[in-house]
Design a protein around this nucleic acid. Structure first.
Lengths: 272, 272
DNA sequence: TTGCTCCTCACGTCACGTGAGGTGGC
DNA sequence: TTGCTCCTCACGTCACGTGAGGTGGC
C-alpha cells in the first residue's frame, strides 16, 4: 500500500497548479486515485505523476485537452506517437506561417504604399476543370495547393489540354466570415469525359473586371486587393460575384515566393 | 470626396472578417469613417485599408489588441518600431521555450522512468544575500537569472565572500497557484554592510531535507521533484516550508544545459 | 417587390484563473 | 484550538464566432 498525496502535495510534485489539477479532474483527463466521499478531498497516487508529466508537456505545447486525452489513453505506443507527431507538424506549419507574416509586416513597414497598375479587362467565358468547397481562411493556401494537385492528377488521367493558368474563385462570404465557398479551376480546351474524384467540369461566365497583378508572397495579397477594390469603388463600378485570382506564376512554377505573380480580378458591373 | 465602403466591401478589401471589423469598432481600434445615424450602417474610407493591413498582420502574430492600439496610434515611427520589436522578441523567447519543451517531451517519451538517488541530509544554518518577490511560474527562469545577476553585482560591490553555490526557495503557493513567493540567494561567509538594490541579508534556517540531484535542463525539473516528493511522502516525513533548489552547476558555470546540476531539497519533519 | 446586406443583442469558445463563502484535518 | 488546506460554485479572461431576430437598401 502506497501513501497518497493531497492535491497541494501533488501540485508540488508535478508543477501543475491546483486549479489545473481540479480542471483535469473535472474533464476526466487526470482523475485522482481516490476522492473522500465525505470531504470530497482528492487523493493522488505517486504513480500518477507520470501521466501528469506527459500532460504538462503536451499542454505547454498548447495541445488541446481532447488531443491530450487521446495521447494519454492511447493503447499502443505507435498511435500515441502518431498523435504527438501530428501536433508537432501542426506547430511547425504554424511557425512557417508566422515567419511569412513577419516578413509581410516588415515589407509593409518599409514600403507602406503599394503601387500597382489597375486595368479594365473583359474575361472570356471558359470551360474549366474545378474543385470547390467550403474553406476556412486559415487553411486556404494549403487547401488550394492540395486541390490543384488533384486537378493536375485528373487532367493527366483524362488527357485534357490545359488552356491558360489556373485560378481561384473566392466568394464574398469567404472574406466576410473567414470561411465560405472557394473554387479552384484549370481552364481546359476540350471537355473531358468523366473527370473522377472531386473534380467537375464548370463553365466560367464571361465578365468585366478590374485587374491588378500581385507580385510576391500570398501573405501580401490583401494589399493588392485594397488597390483594386478601392479603384472599383472609386469608379462606382463594384459588382457582385466572386473575386477571381489567376495564378500566372504559381507555386508550381517557382520556389521563390517573390517571383509569384497573381492577377487579382475584381468583378465590375457589366458594360453590356 | 471619395466614395466610402460598406463593411462587406471593406472586408473584401482588407481580408478582415465582418465580425472582426465590428469588434475593432467596438473597442475603438478601427473606427469607421462614418456611421449612418439612422440605420447604424458603418462606412469605411478606402484610406483606412492601411490601418487594417497593419492590424491584420499584428493580430496574425497574436499581438494583444491593446498593444496593437499602441502601435496604430503611436505618434512617431520610433516608438511604433519599439513596440513591434518588443513583441517580436517575446515571440522569439516563446519559441525558445517551446523548443525546450519539445526536447523535454522527447526525453520523457524515450526514458519514461527517471532514476535518481534520494538522500537524507541536514542543511546547516547559513547567512545569505537574497532577493525575493512574487513570481509567476511562466517567468521564473528569467526572473531567477536576472536576480542572480543583481546578486553578483551587489556581492562585487560590497566584497562579501561567497560560501557555496547559490540557491532558490520556492513556496508551496508558488506551485499551487503558478504564482507566489520565490527567493534566490547566495550564501556569504561574512555579513556585508549595506547591500543596496533589491538585495537583503537573510538567515537560512537549518533543517532536515531529502535531496536528489537533477541532471540537465530545468524543463525536466518536475521529474526529479516527483522522485524526491514521492520519497518524502512514502516515508511519511513530508514537512512544510519552501522547497529549496541548489544550483551546484548553474547557467553561469556552463552553456550546455545537459551539464547543469541542481539539488532538489525537500523539507521533512525535523529529527530534533 | 424580393432577397441580400447590415444591424444589435446574447451567448459560446477554451483552459483554466479569481475570488467568495464555507468546511475539514493536523 | 487555531490556522492552513481543501472544497464547490459563479464568474472573468480574450478576441472574436455563432446564431437569433429584425430592419434597411438596391
Amino acid at each position: 500500500v502506497t501513501a497518497t498525496l493531497s492535491i497541494g502535495e501533488f501540485s508540488k510534485l508535478t508543477h501543475l497548479s491546483v486549479k489545473a489539477l481540479r480542471h483535469y479532474h473535472d474533464v476526466g483527463l487526470l482523475v485522482p486515485a481516490g476522492v473522500d466521499s465525505e470531504s470530497r478531498y482528492r487523493r493522488y497516487a505517486p504513480a500518477q505523476a507520470a501521466d501528469a508529466q506527459l500532460i504538462r508537456r503536451l499542454r505547454a505545447l498548447d495541445m488541446p485537452i481532447e488531443m491530450v486525452r487521446t495521447v494519454v489513453t492511447s493503447a499502443d505506443d505507435r498511435s500515441r506517437q502518431a498523435t504527438i507527431a501530428a501536433h508537432l507538424e501542426a506547430m511547425e506549419a504554424e511557425l512557417e506561417r508566422t515567419k511569412d507574416v513577419v516578413a509581410s509586416l516588415r515589407a509593409l513597414l518599409q514600403q507602406p504604399v503599394l503601387v500597382a497598375d489597375v486595368a479594365r479587362r473583359r474575361l472570356p467565358a471558359q470551360t474549366a476543370l474545378a474543385i470547390g468547397a467550403e474553406v476556412a481562411a486559415a487553411h486556404v493556401e494549403h487547401w488550394c495547393g492540395a486541390a490543384f494537385g488533384e486537378l493536375r492528377d485528373t487532367l493527366d488521367e483524362c488527357g485534357a489540354e490545359v488552356d491558360g493558368p489556373g485560378g481561384g474563385l473566392f466568394s464574398a462570404a469567404f472574406f466576410a466570415d473567414d470561411v465560405g465557398p472557394v473554387t479552384v479551376y484549370v481552364p481546359v480546351r476540350s471537355v473531358p469525359a468523366a473527370p473522377g474524384g472531386r473534380a467537375e467540369v464548370i463553365e466560367l461566365p464571361a465578365g468585366d473586371v478590374l485587374v491588378a497583378v500581385h507580385h510576391g508572397p500570398y501573405a501580401d495579397l490583401d494589399r493588392t486587393y485594397a488597390v483594386v477594390g478601392a479603384a472599383a469603388n472609386e469608379l462606382g463600378l463594384a459588382g457582385d460575384g466572386a473575386i477571381r485570382e489567376r495564378y500566372v506564376v504559381g507555386p508550381d512554377a517557382t520556389d521563390d515566393p517573390h517571383r509569384l505573380r497573381t492577377e487579382v480580378c475584381w468583378p465590375i458591373v457589366d458594360a453590356a
